[in-house]
């Protein structure tokens, strides 16, 4: 095993995981909501990118916003349907509804894109970089750079801008936010739209690493879940760190033990953490 190569793989995977999870982190942090359709929204993002590039002939850079718009639309529709449940904070029903949405998305994607696997090729993913005996692609570099930029901007927006303050207030106390004149419904819509856009971006960037299938998305949900809980529920910085830690763990576990069980092993780590500390690793819940 080449240690440095696995380190690079782990860092790339880690940034990919952090990017996949960020939509859910914000969703949970701001709106106290969960989305079990997250993995299928990732799948949709990947397929919208593939469709725009290979069928509509758009350049990759133009295909990404198309995929993100589709993500926004799906997120908006989900929230529109669930609004009553969201305002009542009926988490049990929300979980089942989002699971249902994931199932519908899978069916719809199968109907539109077919059941065969596709390769999402981008101008970056086909260009390899060899550096000594190390190997990676320009796509990997793009994933790392975009993830870093995305997290930095998000962190800045949440901590230092009016939008961030509004979001934090809604997260802290929705009724109080309502009294303060904040349109809570609008915030919920915005958060869900953001979740859709973020996960579609992740799909467009990360999915070219592997063949894409309409039945994928389950591993992504587990990864997201591990990142969100280990990072401290709702914490942006925590998610970034947890994502990278999980990426390194997966890379080394895959190289040393078995790639087939890597997700299962990551989940095993999470279970042991949850049994020891049910609140996750971050100290303060709701902290960012």
């Amino acid at each position: 095993m080449n240690l440095t190569q696995q380190l690079i793989n782990g860092l790339v995977l880690g940034h990919a995981y952090a990017l996949i999870a960020i939509g859910w982190t914000v969703l949970l942090g701001v709106a106290r909501l969960v989305n079990f359709g997250h993995g299928q929204m990732y799948m949709l993002g990947a397929f919208m990118t593939w469709f725009s590039v290979s069928r509509l002939g758009l350049p990759y850079l133009a295909a990404i916003p198309v995929a993100m718009m589709a993500g926004v639309a799906v997120g908006y529709i989900m929230q529109r349907v669930m609004l009553r449940l969201t305002l009542a904070q009926d988490l049990v029903s929300i979980m089942i509804v989002t699971l249902g949405f994931g199932y519908v998305l899978h069916g719809a994607a199968g109907l539109i894109f077919g059941s065969t696997g596709q390769i999402l090729e981008t101008p970056l993913s086909t260009r390899d970089i060899y550096w000594g005996d190390l190997w990676f692609t320009w796509q990997d570099i793009a994933i790392v750079l975009v993830a870093m930029a995305f997290f930095a901007i998000l962190k800045y927006v949440i901590d230092n801008t009016g939008i961030g303050r509004t979001a934090r207030m809604v997260a802290e106390d929705p009724p109080l936010a309502l009294l303060a004149g904040i349109d809570v419904k609008k915030v919920y819509f915005a958060v869900f739209a953001f979740e859709g856009a973020a996960v579609a971006l992740a799909g467009a960037l990360v999915a070219p690493r592997t063949p894409i299938l309409t039945s994928m998305g389950f591993d992504e949900v587990i990864i997201t879940f591990v990142v969100v809980v280990l990072g401290g529920i709702g914490s942006v910085t925590g998610s970034y760190v947890a994502g990278i830690a999980l990426g390194l763990f997966t890379a080394f576990f895959g190289a040393l033990v078995s790639p087939a069980y890597a997700t299962a092993a990551a989940f095993g780590v999470l279970i042991s953490v949850l049994v020891l500390r049910p609140g996750g690793l971050a100290a303060a819940p709701g902290g960012r």
């Binding site: 029903s93 509804v97 249902g100 949405f101 199932y103 519908v104």
Partner: peptide, 10 residues
């Protein structure tokens, strides 16, 4: 099936 689940709950 998925829509049925969503609509009933929502």
């Amino acid at each position: 099936l998925g829509s049925l689940l969503i609509l009933v709950l929502a």
